[in-house]
Computed example of a mutant assay.
Amino acid sequence: MTGSQRRVVVVSAGLSEPSSTRLLADRLAAATVADLHARGVAASAETVELRPLAHAVVDAMLTGFATGELADVLDRLYAADAIVISTPLFTTTYSGLLKSFLDVLDRDALSGVPVLLGATGGTARHSLALEYSLRPLLTYLRADVVPTSVFAATDDWAAGEGDDGGGLAGRIARAGRELAERVAARGPAAVHDPFASVADFEDLLPGG
């Protein structure tokens, strides 16, 4: 394989353990990495579970600063070449935990970053929730969201693994391929510096 290794950071907003949300996240990441490897691009994926970070996320919202493990997670997210987001749906929208996490990100952190969206829910009636709730949010953050998002209803998990078309397995493969295409087409991610636009203190002093 050629080039520097690309990093896919997976954000799982599942609230139970284990969760179908994490399962979907892992499968989306695996499909992306496998497609990158098939293109001769070295890649790896790491998963961030938001559930253990819930208190730290709330603290960061209240104070304006992330500390400890959350700060480390944000540093890894800012250095990612691609991001996979997987969330459960509640009352036809993404989880409050995911929204809170996105709220503590630097406002430019996701600009231009390839992002794949996934969600889990009870029935296929909620399958469009990703398109009218989460996709607009990520578009507002100027992320490069791939066309195919993947919704997995409870019945989808029992449909079998042999599908390569419109079923869950086929949608996962297609979405992973689209994300891999975006990653392969761009150079390795530059490390995002949230303080890059902050003026130097000396420049603010009279005569500076």
Rank of each mutant, 00 (worst) to 15 (best):
A60P: 03
A71H: 05
G207R: 09
S149K: 02
G170N: 01
G118R: 00
L205K: 08
A159T: 12
V183M: 02
L53H: 03
I85T: 13
D203E: 11
E46S: 12
A119W: 01
R51S: 08
S133G: 07
I85F: 11
T2R: 09
L23I: 07
V57M: 06
H126W: 12
A38L: 10
A25P: 08
M61L: 14
G162C: 11
L137K: 01
Y94K: 10
T2Q: 09
T32F: 00
G166M: 13
S149E: 09
G40T: 07
R27V: 05
L204I: 11
T92K: 10
T92E: 09
A66H: 02
V58W: 06
Q5V: 14
G166Y: 13
R27G: 07
V48K: 05
A180P: 06
L24E: 02
L179C: 00
A79T: 10
R177A: 10
G122T: 14
L28E: 01
L50G: 07
F195P: 03
D108K: 14
L138V: 02
R107E: 14
V48F: 05
Q5N: 06
Y132W: 14
D193R: 11
D155I: 15
T21Y: 02
L204S: 11
T93V: 09
G122P: 11
P114F: 01
D156R: 03
L204R: 12
A71F: 03
G207C: 09
L204Q: 12
A190G: 12
L23K: 07
T32V: 01
G122M: 13
D193V: 11
A60I: 08
V10C: 06
A119P: 03
D156E: 08
T21V: 06
A34K: 10
R174N: 08
D106F: 15
A66Q: 03
A34Q: 12
A30E: 14
T63F: 05
A109M: 13
R177N: 07
A80W: 00
A80Q: 03
D59E: 14
A129L: 10
G170H: 01
S86P: 08
S127A: 15
I172K: 06
R7M: 05
A199Q: 07
A31Q: 04
G165A: 15
G68Y: 04
A124G: 14
T47C: 07
D203V: 08
V113K: 00
L77G: 00
G40Y: 07
P18N: 10
A71V: 04
V8G: 00
G122E: 11
T139K: 11
A159W: 11
T93L: 08
A153E: 13
T92P: 02
V146C: 00
L53G: 03
E17P: 02
G64V: 08
G207N: 11
D106E: 15
G121C: 12
V145F: 04
D59V: 14
